[in-house]
Write a protein that binds this DNA or RNA. Structure first.
Lengths: 201, 201
DNA sequence: GTTCCTATTGATACCTGGTGCCAATCGAAA
DNA sequence: TTTCGATTGGCACCAGGTATCAATAGGAAC
């Protein structure tokens, strides 16, 4: 009932809209116990756009991000790829990848980078992970850049399966190690590089 | 200039709005060379909501998914959790989880569900995946619902490490099997799993 | 021909959630 | 008492619609 000061009301208003951008001025009237004109003057002062503008902005944001989602098929950015031989991918650990409590990356993101790379390096139309033996050498933290290196260890000729070793580093430090067995369809793609002994470095 | 048939126009309209949901009726009038009334009758017939409703729906979708992102820390919906004993999580394979080419789920999503569950089932403030030995029994396809069951196999008492076995099914069929070694901080939590009890309902 | 039917267009009233502007009121401080 | 900021009321107007009724054009059926 008691009126808040203008300053307090502005804070309240900002907070309310932040936590629920779908509120109309009329609903805010109810919540803040002031007239709708006051709400509108407040929004004006605080440069909070009207409901429809807010919704539009949200819709635009989500629309744009949906459009760029196909890139998300591969976790990490592949910077080097020699089919059936080796590959390198970069992946930076950001806020959405870590436990909020500890700032340590969830294991499956590190795995996802390695897995994506292991699959990408296989020169075949269809490549699926059959199994993997993995080890997290040390936790990876917010902001760290993971460099995953994949080496195809055995047989593009071998029927159906390839072994891929992936080691992920932060700087010089090894943070992840995985041995993947990748199932592949029989047909290799165009430039059928028969590199069966394909070991590198 | 030449008029399209109604059927053709309806197809056009659907397509236009699909690729740009921000179009007003007036703009559609320009694009389809019919009156605004016709556009509106068409939308009515095709049950395409008005611009504002479309924007609102998009905003809601994005808002909900943003709000549930912290929950997204866990891939899959945990439906049962007995700390240090067992847990069950559900995860439906959707468009964004599959290879667009084959409709088969990327391995790391299936892994992520299992990994999330393995970590969640540990009754400890900090729990991290140390290593894992996993096997993909068969590919999982678009639309399939993965039911992951986790069993803690050894020692909440044991210092530092717990073994968790996770088996994922689609229906009766086993699609994934993993043995996780989870690193845990010494201190078990009281009664509640404060960190990540957040399920989506 | 005429009738029937669909598709299209026009016109009007009304709705929500606002903006913009002007005037009135209230309360406290100078 | 005057003055001033804060608040409120009222009204015109706007976009982007819904809802409804009427008018018109063009074929196909009889």
């Amino acid at each position: 009932m008691e009126r808040l000061s203008k300053r307090e009301r502005h804070q309240q208003l900002t907070k309310l809209i932040e936590e629920n951008p779908f509120l109309t001025d009329r609903e805010l009237t109810r919540l803040l116990k002031v007239s709708i004109q006051t709400i509108r003057l407040d929004r004006l002062e605080l440069s909070i756009p009207e409901l429809r503008e807010r919704l539009k902005m949200m819709a635009e944001r989500s629309y744009d991000s949906v459009r760029s989602l196909p890139l998300d098929e591969i976790i990490g950015e592949i910077v080097d790829l020699q089919l059936d031989k080796s590959g390198i991918s970069l992946f930076e650990i950001r806020g959405e990848h870590v436990f909020s409590r500890s700032g340590i990356a969830r294991g499956h993101y590190v795995f996802a980078q390695a897995n994506s790379l292991a699959v990408a390096v296989i020169n075949d139309e269809v490549a699926l992970t059959a199994s993997a033996d993995i080890r997290f050498a040390r936790p990876v933290r917010l902001g760290e850049k993971c460099i995953a290196k994949a080496y195809v260890r055995s047989g593009s000729s071998q029927r159906g399966m390839s072994k891929v070793e992936v080691i992920t580093y932060v700087g010089e430090e090894k943070v992840f190690h995985g041995n993947f067995v990748i199932y592949r369809s029989q047909t290799a793609l165009a430039g059928e590089s028969g590199a069966e002994g394909g070991d590198i470095l």
